[in-house]
Design a protein around this nucleic acid. Structure first.
Lengths: 149, 149
DNA sequence: ACTTGAAGTTTCAAGCTTGAAATTATTTCC
DNA sequence: GGAAATAATTTCAAGCTTGAAACTTCAAGT
């Protein structure tokens, strides 16, 4: 057992490239799906999902941290959602530096439909994996992130 | 065994979100690394890697297909690499619609240094995983892509 | 040769994304 | 209380990315 023909370093690189490819393919598929079927984009969906999940107004910085994007990026996407009436910005009362952002009623309604369609599409994408394989996948990811950051 | 408390659909979604987060984190880390230590960007690195790997001039369309990006995107990145003297475009002799793109000598030299640094950084990122876990990861990815798509 | 359709690439507008600088507000420390 | 450091957000330029339209060239059938 324990075939070390390929050095560990090389195998880590190959694995990373495989993960990257998988993610790109899935993202491309979902982007296309959201565009064609739902007339929206992935970044907008991600922001709406984060806001919906939070259930209460979020600070701009919480949003960008949650989504792993820059502050400037969050500002730009929220600007567009706000322009389209899907999100609202409210200045915080306790700290006037802070802006709270939340889905509007229209945004919440819109997102709930989007979320159902998106979930169904993800279900198709991962149709080949069952419970055990999915759990194994998440276990490996958790281990990967173990202490390295 | 076989705990189905969480429905399969929901578990597929959770797993996808975990993969997405892992990929984003790793990409952010590598982008930052390439910027700070190597004065370059991820898209440029990806294009150079594809050209280096091919070992011979590639059609623009082969490049964008390989990288899973649009043709317009490949054009833009190659434009910048060419401007910086790292890549070369040559019109095909047999088909005048086709442009072949390859690394210049400077580009090849530059990439070889970049690749070493990049590989070492990926090695750090995945330091927590050993041979078996990496193989398992790739097996799961292969199965995921099984017939869907 | 001519038309029609398809293929390869670029161009373009719009949107996404980053990192740095600027702006405004708060906190801390004299 | 005032200066200086810190924090939250926005602004901005540059680059990335897409999808559609335009352009050039090739292939096939007439």
């Amino acid at each position: 057992m324990n075939d070390h023909a390929t050095p560990l370093t090389r195998r880590r690189l190959r694995t990373w490239l495989r993960i990257l490819r998988l993610t790109r393919r899935a993202e491309n598929h979902l982007r296309e799906f959201l565009r064609r079927e739902c007339d929206t984009t992935l970044p907008r969906f991600d922001v709406m999902a984060a806001l919906h999940r939070a259930g209460k107004p979020m600070k701009m910085s919480e949003l960008s941290e949650r989504l792993l994007v820059s502050n400037g990026n969050a500002t730009a996407v929220v600007d567009r959602l706000e322009r389209d009436g899907l999100a609202l910005r409210v200045a915080s009362e306790s700290d006037r530096r802070v802006k709270h952002v939340a889905l509007s009623d229209a945004g919440r309604t819109r997102f709930e439909a989007l979320a159902r369609a998106h979930e169904a599409e993800v279900d198709k994408l991962f149709a080949n994996l069952g419970h055990e394989e999915l759990d194994m996948m998440r276990t490996l990811i958790r281990r990967m992130e173990g202490q390295s950051q």
